[in-house]
Amino acid sequence: MHFKEYSSLLIVQQDTIVTVTLNRPVALNALSSQVIDELDHVLDIVGAAIAGGAWPCRGMIITGAGEKAFAAGADIREMTGMSPDQAWAYSTRMQALTLKLESLPVPVIAAVNGFALGGGCELAMACDFIYAATRAAFGQPEVSLGLVPGFGGSVRMQQRMGLARARELLYTGQRITADEAHRLGLVNALFDSQEALLTGARRTLLMIAGQSPTAVAAVKSTMRRVEGHSTSRGLEIEAESFREAFRTADMQEGTRAFLAKEKPAFPGC
């Protein structure tokens, strides 16, 4: 894959892991329209490369530059001059990006190294899971600005931690520590330093990269599709995915290797 040089992002591809760093440390990596556009472009490149069948990317890490912030929120300076219609367009543009993240057929880890507030917390929640440095903090402080979450916070926070706790955080605008976020299930794992955080995220993605890429993609898609359905409908969707797995070369290779007591060489199709 070939990425252009971005003004607000740093892209590093090592092996099959792509690390995307939000690179506006002076602005605490705030999510400006430019950041959103550039993130969207990166996801398009990765998605198109995977669709080509080569699986050049098996996982993605999103993190922030500097030691203070993952992303401290939306760009308030940019928002101040927006009309209501422009604000709606800004919101729906970022919402579309979060949906694209969720539909990317590889796992995405948010490596939260500092503040993840407002839009930053919403971006992290759109990733498959969140790893955090112990100094990180999370919150949706929109009510303190006379605003409501616009990038998915009112939807994904209750999915992540339950309705009552999400209401409390959204109504109060309260900021919580990484430890509390971990206790509530928002964060999967905590790390003592930024270096350990990125190493841990990469280690997990490399472990996932050793599995069948078509199966991992199917599991991610299935979990997204069953959300919000009844148990019976969810089981139907799962059975459909199970059936489709039997059409893949990865299933044939995986079961063959298991019976032969060999390491599988998944073709990714």
Score class of each variant (00 low, 15 high):
174 Q>L: 11
199 T>H: 14
226 V>A: 05
161 M>C: 15
180 E>N: 09
157 M>Q: 14
195 E>D: 15
203 R>P: 05
142 E>I: 06
211 Q>E: 07
206 L>Y: 07
217 A>Q: 02
213 P>T: 00
166 A>L: 15
210 G>R: 05
200 G>P: 07
172 T>W: 04
149 P>V: 08
215 A>L: 04
156 R>P: 11
142 E>F: 13
191 F>R: 04
192 D>I: 13
208 I>S: 01
209 A>Y: 00
148 V>H: 08
204 T>R: 06
209 A>Q: 01
209 A>T: 02
186 L>G: 05
224 R>V: 08
208 I>D: 00
176 I>V: 02
200 G>D: 02
204 T>Y: 05
181 A>C: 06
150 G>V: 07
177 T>F: 05
141 P>V: 11
204 T>Q: 08
215 A>V: 00
202 R>E: 08
146 G>E: 04
219 V>S: 06
178 A>F: 10
209 A>D: 01
186 L>F: 05
203 R>T: 14
145 L>S: 13
176 I>Y: 01
203 R>H: 13
212 S>N: 05
147 L>I: 04
185 G>E: 06
183 R>V: 09
213 P>L: 00
227 E>A: 14
196 A>Q: 15
152 G>C: 10
189 A>I: 02
173 G>A: 11
212 S>T: 03
141 P>M: 12
178 A>T: 11
181 A>W: 02
222 T>N: 07
146 G>N: 03
212 S>V: 01
185 G>Q: 06
208 I>C: 00
203 R>D: 13
201 A>S: 04
173 G>D: 12
149 P>Y: 07
201 A>Q: 01
211 Q>P: 04
190 L>G: 10
223 M>E: 07
220 K>F: 03
178 A>Y: 11
206 L>I: 12
218 A>Y: 03
205 L>H: 01
184 L>Q: 03
142 E>D: 13
175 R>L: 11
145 L>H: 13
171 Y>R: 15
169 L>F: 10
217 A>G: 06
175 R>E: 12
164 A>G: 10
221 S>D: 12
217 A>V: 00
179 D>R: 15
214 T>G: 03
165 R>M: 09
